[in-house]
């Protein structure tokens, strides 16, 4: 069983890890259902699916899909037209906005996210105490 290799997160990237149902035709990454951005027509899907099954005898990964990362890179203009004013969707989970926004943020702010989730230091268990209280909540009204 393959796991989705799409990176989620903003400041710290980590692999999605959900069960992959497809493989991106462009970057060849394994992709879960939620991170498929574009796919062929249903009948084409079926053809590819059958082929794959007989070929490998095990998995049934679709191949004619585009992952969200590749889609975002290939459709910058279309996405910027839709989102140049920010989030304008009424759906809970607009991953197109998320990946478009993240992509342009990294570029515009020259931000380099942490991307090392498989090392031990990022494996978080429970950290005990919260913030020490400081003067943070004091008013800073100074107009």
């Amino acid at each position: 069983m393959k796991r989705c290799q799409i990176k989620t997160g903003f400041f710290v990237l980590k692999e999605c890890g959900a069960i992959a149902t497809a493989r991106c035709r462009s970057c060849k990454k394994y992709v879960c259902e939620a991170h498929i951005a574009e796919q062929g027509k249903p009948q084409d899907d079926m053809a590819v699916l059958t082929n794959t099954t007989t070929e490998t005898g095990t998995s049934s990964l679709r191949k004619d899909v585009l992952c969200i990362e590749c889609y975002t890179k290939m459709n910058k203009e279309k996405l910027s037209e839709k989102y140049h004013k920010g989030y304008r969707s009424s759906t809970t989970n607009d991953i197109f906005w998320y990946f478009y926004m993240r992509d342009s943020f990294y570029r515009n702010h020259h931000y380099q996210p942490f991307d090392d989730y498989d090392t031990d230091s990022f494996n978080t268990t429970s950290y005990g105490s919260d913030f020490d209280d400081d003067d943070g909540s004091a008013s800073f009204y100074d107009s």
Binding site: G9, F10, F11, Y87, S90, N93, D94, Y98, T124
Partner: peptide, 17 residues
């Protein structure tokens, strides 16, 4: 709500367990 808090929760969701 629609254009700020909602997308912010979306970002935080991807950023937390």
């Amino acid at each position: 709500l629609r254009f700020y808090i909602f997308p912010l929760i979306n970002v935080l969701k991807e950023e937390s367990q």
